[in-house]
Amino acid sequence: MKLLVCISQTPDTTAKVSFNADGTEFNAAGVQFIMNPYDEWYALVRACELRETLGGTVVALNVGPAANETTIRKALAIGADEAVRINAEPPSAAFVAKQIAEYARSQNFDIIFLGKETIDYNGSEVGAMVAEYLDLPYVSYASKLDLNGNTATLERDIEGGVEVLEVDLPFVLSAAKGMAVQRIPNMRGIMTARTKPLTEVQPVAFEDAARAVQFTLPPAKAGVKLVDPEHMDELVRLLHEEAKVI
């Protein structure tokens, strides 16, 4: 079983989001970066679980600069056997997808895992693009994955329900809550991660047709109105006259 897990590095969920003065770049000063939670908690952990029961190799792949190696080592500490870093400062999801696809093309992975989206750009774009480049089936928002020989059974979150489906290997999936339970790296994992192979690969040229040109912060939220539990008439009036929901 040869499994690829694509990991992104994102600002921490609690990071203060700000941009440079002309709104063209994210202001990374003082921001703590983490492994994208959906990649880590669900995609990486499920891949490691499958490797533990079925044998094989888990490769963690990141498209990013050398500064991302702390995050990549964490993936190794959680259980990936080896890691690859495609050396680039990715300008877009399409760029990342192209790099992943070019790397994976010759490697014959059985399953390519991604998180359902990154918590910074919330795009959910990369998985579908990788699948298209590689002419593979794609299961997005998978919340359960079981393997029986060459066939995978998955559950996939859809609007108002769940789809149960089957697909033969190889395929691409994006992982959502439910697929696995977060693992905290143990001391042994952290120690062995230091000596596991981390290979640097050079990116292929790619010109993206869509580029981010201007970042802005949303308008400040209106204040919260607190209604005293003794004044339910007031709550009803607010819901009726201001919120206009009843």
Binding site: P11, T13, V17, F19, I119, D120, Y121, N122, A209, A210, R211, A212, V213, Q214, F215, T216, L217, P218
Partner: peptide, 20 residues
């Protein structure tokens, strides 16, 4: 435009390709 950082920012994109 789209919302990013789980609603904490807005980003404007320009798409230059013939098909969008």
């Amino acid at each position: 435009k789209k919302s990013v950082f789980s609603g904490k920012a807005i980003v404007a994109y320009e798409i230059g390709s013939a098909v969008k």
